[in-house]
Amino acid sequence: MPLTTTTPGADGPRRRRVLAGGAAALLTAAGTAVLAGCSSADAGAAEHSSAAKRLRERAGRDAAALLERYDATIAAHAPLAARLRPLRAEVARHAEAFGSAKASPSPSASPSAPPVSVPREEKAALAALADAERRTADARTSALGQAPPELARLLASVAAAGAAHAYLLAGGAA
């Protein structure tokens, strides 16, 4: 039987390979940093694009419409006011976040918009409000694909809150 010996490290990486690999890793990291800088600049421009502005305005109008629905429901069903005020306050903050001029801290009727019809029964009124929250949340979720990163995060967060509102309004059985 022939005796074969190998020297330690003969199959391991050589110094040149280690140095070349390290240089490649540094170049890759530097390239990634340059690309990230470019993409964040692009994202900043996208946040101020006309498409982003239209998405933000639509989300603000949707929030203002929800506020009007909350106000009408509170006016029609005073016993629900304590239950609805915290949700309405969140919707007002959402409207402010989207830059809606109609975001008011207290319920007030808008003279330019037609009155919101509210069902006579409390349970039906809550169901209608939950449905409006659900539709608005779905619209915001659908808009995520066209939104730049910061606006997409805001839309996603507010859509999640709207879905939670719908769940709460439906009595936990959405």
Rank of each mutant, 00 (worst) to 15 (best):
L3E: 10
T7L: 13
G9A: 13
A10K: 06
A10P: 00
D11H: 04
D11T: 13
L19S: 05
A20S: 14
A20M: 11
G21R: 09
T28Y: 04
A30Q: 13
V34Y: 13
L35D: 11
L35N: 08
A45T: 10
E47H: 04
H48N: 08
S49E: 07
S49D: 10
S50L: 03
A52T: 02
A52Q: 02
R54A: 01
R54K: 07
R56M: 02
R56E: 02
R61L: 09
R61F: 02
A63E: 14
A64T: 13
A65C: 02
L67F: 02
E68S: 13
R69Q: 15
T73I: 06
A76T: 12
H77P: 07
L80A: 11
A81C: 02
A82H: 13
R85T: 15
R85N: 07
P86W: 00
L87A: 15
R88P: 08
V91I: 15
V91Q: 10
F98K: 05
G99E: 13
S100Y: 01
A101F: 07
A103E: 08
P107T: 12
S108L: 11
A109D: 10
P114I: 06
P115G: 10
V116G: 14
R120Y: 07
E121H: 13
E122L: 01
E122H: 05
K123T: 15
D131R: 10
E133P: 04
E133W: 01
T136W: 06
A137V: 10
A137H: 01
R140I: 00
R140A: 01
S142C: 00
A143N: 08
L144A: 13
Q146M: 11
P148L: 09
P149S: 04
L151K: 06
A152G: 12
R153A: 14
L154F: 03
L154P: 03
V158G: 00
A159V: 10
A164N: 07
H165W: 01
Y167L: 11
L168A: 14
L168D: 08
L168N: 08
G171K: 08
A173S: 13
